[in-house]
């Protein structure tokens, strides 16, 4: 094996970039699940955000407008899920799967004429002096703004759930919707807002792929990131800060396998490229082995439809 091409710093910086789309999608889904709703449409919302963001960024030549369009697009497509599950009381699992299929198809249709175009590049934030510091400079400063936004969002959600009244109500609705209703909270409204937030986050995650990470538009480019984000919510046992850990772990393994491939490791490529998914499955199995702990953290009303009984 040839180790000369490996640089720890470059490795860590790429891991951060690889983890960002999943972080966005996962923190959004965490909020949705905390409110008691299981939205399996993350993949569809992500890719729809990716195409919306791409189209908007290319036509206005502004990545910022692209990201805003992605968030609006993600929230917009999640509104379909709101109508289905919150107002028509449809099954959440089936609606979520339908949303994924719908998102994949619609984005392919919309992005058809955009394949092969390069989007405007997003500026890296560089702070004079600081970014040139050895090691720390490359690692902490000098990324694009979205990486910081993702980390900030996770901290913000953590603070919101733990310390604010809004967060308390959101958790209450996810924990026992009948009791929340009896106390006079509007279960459907809280859940609607949570789903829209989750959609916007997934859209941002998708746009990060099409505008920064790849960066171009190809059909089905999310390649399962949405599903990984769903798995990471469980891995994190519905705790925001652990999303950070889960996303970096997954990002780390996927970049590592690329590096190993580049270095010519003596393992078939197929095994290397399935490694991140295998690790995800493995970690999930270990995490859910202790049924007591797993069910203690899960929102008790997760996936149950709410019918006001009175």
């Amino acid at each position: 094996m040839d180790f000369s091409s490996f640089s720890t710093l470059t490795f860590l910086a790429t891991v951060m970039a690889a983890a960002t789309p999943i972080m966005f999608a996962a923190i959004g889904e965490l909020v949705v699940e905390k409110s008691g709703v299981l939205n399996l449409g993350v993949e569809g919302m992500m890719i729809f955000g990716a195409v919306c963001g791409f189209i908007a960024a290319v036509s206005t030549d502004s990545p910022t407008i692209g990201f805003i369009a992605a968030a609006v697009g993600g929230a917009g497509i999640s509104f379909l899920f709101v109508i289905l599950t919150q107002y028509l009381k449809a099954n959440q699992v089936a609606s979520g799967l339908a949303l994924t299929l719908f998102g994949l198809g619609l984005s392919a249709l919309m992005g058809h004429s955009y394949t092969g175009i390069k989007p405007p590049s997003s500026a890296k934030l560089s702070v004079d002096g600081l970014s040139d510091l050895p090691i720390v400079g490359r690692l902490i400063f000098g990324h694009d703004a979205m990486i910081y936004l993702a980390i900030f969002l996770i901290l913000a959600v953590w603070y919101f759930l733990k310390y604010t009244r809004g967060g308390l109500i959101l958790r209450a609705v996810g924990e026992n919707h009948d009791a929340a209703h009896a106390l006079g909270y509007r279960v459907t409204r809280v859940r609607t807002l949570a789903i829209l937030f989750g959609g916007a986050c997934a859209g941002l995650g998708g746009a990060y792929l099409s505008l920064v990470r790849v960066p171009q538009w190809t059909e089905g480019m999310t390649a399962g990131s949405g599903w990984i984000a769903l798995a990471i919510v469980v891995f994190a046992s519905w705790k925001p800060l652990r999303i950070l850990l889960g996303a970096y772990l997954f990002g780390g393994v996927s970049i590592l396998q690329l590096n190993l491939q580049a270095m010519g490791a003596d393992i078939p490529v197929a095994y290397l490229s399935m490694a991140p998914y295998l690790v995800t499955i493995l970690v999930l199995v270990i995490m859910s082995a202790d049924r007591k702990r797993a069910s203690l953290n899960a929102p008790a009303s997760l996936g149950r439809a709410f019918h006001a009984s009175s």
């Binding site: 009244r165 308390l168 109500i169 958790r171 209450a172 924990e175 026992n176 009948d178 009791a179 929340a180 009896a182 106390l183 909270y185 203690l296 953290n297 929102p299 008790a300």
Partner: peptide, 15 residues
């Protein structure tokens, strides 16, 4: 009871 099992007494009362 209109209580939330996974939450503390104080949180339940605040709700």
């Amino acid at each position: 009871f209109s209580l939330f099992e996974a939450m503390s007494v104080a949180e339940n009362i605040a709700l």
